[in-house]
Write a protein that binds this DNA or RNA. Structure first.
Lengths: 192, 192
DNA sequence: ATTCGCCTTGGGCGAATGACCAATATGTAG
DNA sequence: CTACATATTGGTCATTCGCCCAAGGCGAAT
């Protein structure tokens, strides 16, 4: 039993963050209460305000943490893409995993919205979008895109827009999106 | 005083809808309470549940009403655009009015999110997006776009995505977006 | 064995919520 | 004038909320 109190504490903190990441998509950002959170994490209600100064801080850390993981998971694949087509294909393929109604998609939408009412969250989210744009920029520059700055910004926005619309019209999948978005990019080596 | 009770009733109903359209962006969909709504509309709290079966129904009717007005306001201009560039320019110009943090943008984002948790709202919203796509489709077809179905869907999504990202990065305005989105469309007559 | 520090418990506070309702007002119809 | 329908009032109900806290638990250090 080498588990110290501090280690158990860190575990509870992590469980609370995990529970938040689950509950935000399930019931919505504003309906994640301290009691619901504690129940899902399997801890006493009072622990929420022991490990976190407020519910808002907890939710922020949980949401941004998950989103950062998702974004960073896509970046390395882009960097090693041989052609523009391969890179775009890869991105849209991973986007297909997000149907607009799955937990991850909902977490994204919920967080975007919550950011409109939380200055700190908005700043963190802006930084995350900037990281994603950076990954897109270097990938595009690698393949001779001249206005990669603008293209990266629009492409990042378009991808989030597709995710948003996919919740309403599920048929908006990568085969339908690819040829249109492809035209935004430099000709590259081949046209699918 | 020819104002009948029924007329006053209809006026109260309308005032409640207007108040809802104001408050949803101000405080957020889930924080629009019956009392706050009644206060803004200048009526007694009990009237909310007299004119509407539930708060959810009121919010739905108010939000979709405003969104439909916004969408339908853009459509006729598109139909009379002489060139592809003129049409896209027009759309992006009207999009510039929505900074991502203004009431209308927030209403859109709030409603998209609320739709993920409200079956009826999702259906109404899907229909609205379909109307917007239709306007885009006929505009594109008019100018020789062959895959106007797919382009309209992606363009509609991209526009919403730009609005979403603009809340985080305000510099994503029409001059930056135009040249990139322009490439998604058929060559048309001129390149800006 | 005692002290120390971190973690945990469960309950309680005031405030706000959606929905509901009996009572009242006000205009129309018989 | 009397009945009636609709609109309105102001308050009550049970429930839930975020946050707080006194008290207890427990391994580590002395």
């Amino acid at each position: 039993m080498a588990v110290t109190a501090a280690e158990r504490g860190r575990d509870v903190r992590r469980r609370l963050l995990t529970a938040a990441a689950e509950l935000i998509p399930e019931v919505g950002w504003n309906s994640v209460s301290t009691r619901l959170l504690a129940q899902r994490a399997g801890v006493a209600p009072g622990l929420v305000h022991y490990h976190f100064p407020s519910l808002a801080v907890l939710l922020r850390e949980a949401a941004v943490g998950v989103m950062r993981e998702v974004v960073l998971a896509t970046a390395p694949g882009l960097a090693t893409a041989e052609t523009v087509d391969a890179g775009l294909d890869l991105m849209l393929a991973s986007l297909d995993a997000y149907t607009g109604t799955d937990p991850t998609s909902l977490l994204f939408i919920e967080t975007y919205l919550a950011a409109t009412r939380d200055e700190n969250l908005r700043t963190e989210l802006a930084g995350l979008v900037e990281e994603f744009r950076d990954a897109l920029r270097s990938w595009l520059a690698e393949h001779g895109q001249d206005d990669h700055h603008q293209v990266a910004a629009v492409l990042a926005a378009a991808i989030d827009g597709v995710m948003l619309h996919r919740a309403l019209h599920p048929e908006l999948t990568s085969p339908a999106v690819f040829p249109v978005l492809r035209r935004m990019l430099a000709p590259g080596t081949a046209n699918r």
